[in-house]
Simulated assay, not measured.
Amino acid sequence: MKTQRLQTKPRVAVCALRVQATDDKTRLMPAGTFHAPRGAAEGTGPWHLSAEHAQAIIRLAAARSTDIAIDYEHQTLYAEKNGQPAPAAGWVDPRSLEFRDDGLYGAIAWTAKARAAITPGPNGEPAEYLYLSPVFPYDANGVPLDLLHLALTNTPAIDEGAAQLAAARMAITHDVTNDAQEIDTVKREQLILTLGLAAEATEEQIDGAIAALKASAADAKALREALGAKDDAKPDEAVAALKASSATAAPDMTQFVPVAVYQETTQQLAALKANSNTAELDALIKEGLDDGRIPGQATADWLRVQGIAACKAHLEGAPSIAALKATQTQGKPPEGTKEKDGELSDTELAVCKAMNLTPEQYRAANPA
């Protein structure tokens, strides 16, 4: 793509000519000074097409690798916005362009449907379409610079958004060779700035940025459709639609259970867990009393208060004291035997050592 720095922004316009279905060439753009019949994308003319200007357009067209499309109602420019197809009504052979006294002519291959639409009825009925509307960029002096595409229409005008799209396509996708005339209306620097790219951006980076914009537009369109928002809805309107849909959407109650059922189930699980822990704690204490790792009932009651984790920790660290199992007094001094007041027996001291307790802590847990 060859571009040249501009002093004015690209402008795109349309005009209208009576369409004629002939086997010869059809006039595509009038010669001399002409205006738009019902307004144009930017301004209403006047535009000026001379033989010299027409030859520049002919050279650009000859360098194209594709034919020049003719659609219906300029749908090619609106397809991305309204999502509707843009079927071709015909195709202009770009190498068939020639300038005549009254304008620029070219050979058109019409589709069968389009040919029927532009042909009057057998009894003089008017045709469905009367005008052929070319889309062309022009400079500050109103000189047409190229022929982008054409449309069958009865209202030959396009809005500003379509004009901007046509200008962007002219700027980045115009199919010309290096030997063709430069498109001096393409303001490349402005395009790069709009896309947020670096000044030295390559053509591949520009194409990638434009593709990303198209993908974002497609995602936004899908989101608006999902929310039921209008095509031209602003972000805050889309958010409002989302809130409204979430507020009115009825939940699938088959995916939920009543609160009372949930609470009852939770309470039952908690009770089962508590009973299981209590039974396990009772079994651990009994085992400790039997093998002497728990010296007496007072220690057993104390461990019961501490819980199952503390009981397990005590049993893992306490030695099994055979004397407590063997004596008939369960580790208590025989009747008639007294220890000194305030002192612990050897057995009790062994328990203190095993449990890492001080005598005072042991006496507090096992009062006489």
Rank of each mutant, 00 (worst) to 15 (best):
E264T: 11
K243E: 15
L77F: 04
A116F: 04
D102R: 08
E360K: 14
Q75K: 12
D67L: 00
L269P: 07
A271M: 12
R18D: 14
L60R: 15
G103A: 03
Y362Q: 09
K338G: 03
K234Y: 06
M253R: 14
D252Y: 15
D102P: 13
Q267V: 03
P359Q: 02
L28T: 04
G336T: 11
E204P: 01
R18E: 10
Q267G: 07
A270N: 15
T26G: 05
K312R: 15
D175G: 07
L324P: 03
A151M: 06
R18N: 11
Q328I: 02
A201Q: 01
D252T: 08
N154L: 10
I118H: 09
P334Q: 12
G43A: 01
L289F: 12
R95L: 01
T177M: 07
Q255F: 09
R100P: 07
R169V: 09
L197G: 04
L344E: 06
Q267M: 11
A212V: 00
L223H: 07
W47G: 01
T327C: 02
S133H: 03
T248Y: 02
L272F: 09
A180Q: 07
E42C: 04
L269Y: 06
E80I: 02
F99L: 02
A88T: 14
S345M: 04
D71R: 12
I158G: 10
R224L: 14
A274P: 15
R59A: 07
E264H: 13
D282C: 03
A16K: 07
G124M: 01
A51E: 12
K325F: 04
Q263V: 10
T358E: 06
T254K: 15
V305H: 11
P258K: 11
S246P: 00
S65G: 13
A229W: 02
A220K: 13
I158C: 11
A274T: 12
P334G: 07
D282G: 13
L130V: 12
R100T: 09
I118V: 13
E73I: 08
V305P: 00
K332E: 08
S345P: 06
H53E: 14
P46C: 04
L197T: 00
Q268G: 09
F136N: 06
S216Q: 12
E200L: 05
T8H: 15
A199T: 07
R64N: 04
T76S: 14
A63N: 13
D159R: 10
A217I: 01
K340V: 13
R95M: 03
A114F: 08
F34D: 01
N123M: 04
A226W: 02
I68N: 01
S65P: 05
V135R: 12
R38G: 02
Y262N: 09
L49F: 05
Q205F: 03
A310I: 10
K332H: 15
D236T: 04
A114Q: 08
A241K: 12
D139P: 08
I68S: 01
R38T: 14
A323S: 06
T299L: 12
